[in-house]
Amino acid sequence: MLNSPPLQHCDEEAERRDVDSVVRAGPSGAVTVAAIATAIVVACWFAFYLFVFLPRGS
């Protein structure tokens, strides 16, 4: 079992400033991952359309 040191109580103002700085940074990493995943899905859809549907129709 891992033992961690007891939590130090800090003042609420410092904690609020820390939380505000994290929230201000925003979820840019999550947005980037979502954009990459969306681009991959759209690319797969176009590849499927170009290499499967178009050759069958012509």
Rank of each mutant, 00 (worst) to 15 (best):
L54Y: 07
A14R: 07
W45T: 05
V42E: 03
S28A: 13
F53S: 05
A35W: 04
P55T: 01
G29C: 02
V41K: 01
A30T: 12
A43P: 02
V23L: 15
A35S: 10
S28E: 11
S4Y: 10
S4H: 09
E12T: 10
S4Q: 09
A25F: 11
H9Q: 15
R16V: 09
A30F: 12
H9Y: 11
V52D: 03
L50H: 00
A47N: 00
C10E: 13
V19M: 09
S21A: 15
W45S: 05
E15I: 13
A43V: 02
M1A: 13
L7S: 08
S28W: 10
A39P: 05
E13Y: 07
V41W: 00
E15D: 11
Q8F: 11
S4G: 08
V31M: 12
G29H: 04
A35H: 06
M1R: 06
I40G: 04
L2T: 08
A34N: 08
V33P: 02
E15Y: 12
S28T: 12
R24T: 14
F46P: 00
A39L: 08
R56F: 08
D18K: 14
Q8L: 14
L50V: 00
S58H: 10
G29W: 02
A39E: 00
V33S: 05
C10N: 12
V22R: 15
D20L: 14
W45R: 01
A39H: 00
S58C: 07
E13M: 08
Y49W: 09
T32E: 09
V42P: 02
L2G: 06
M1P: 11
V33F: 02
S4N: 07
S21N: 12
A47I: 03
E15K: 13
L7T: 08
P5A: 14
I36H: 03
V33Q: 06
V33I: 03
F46K: 00
L54W: 06
C10A: 12
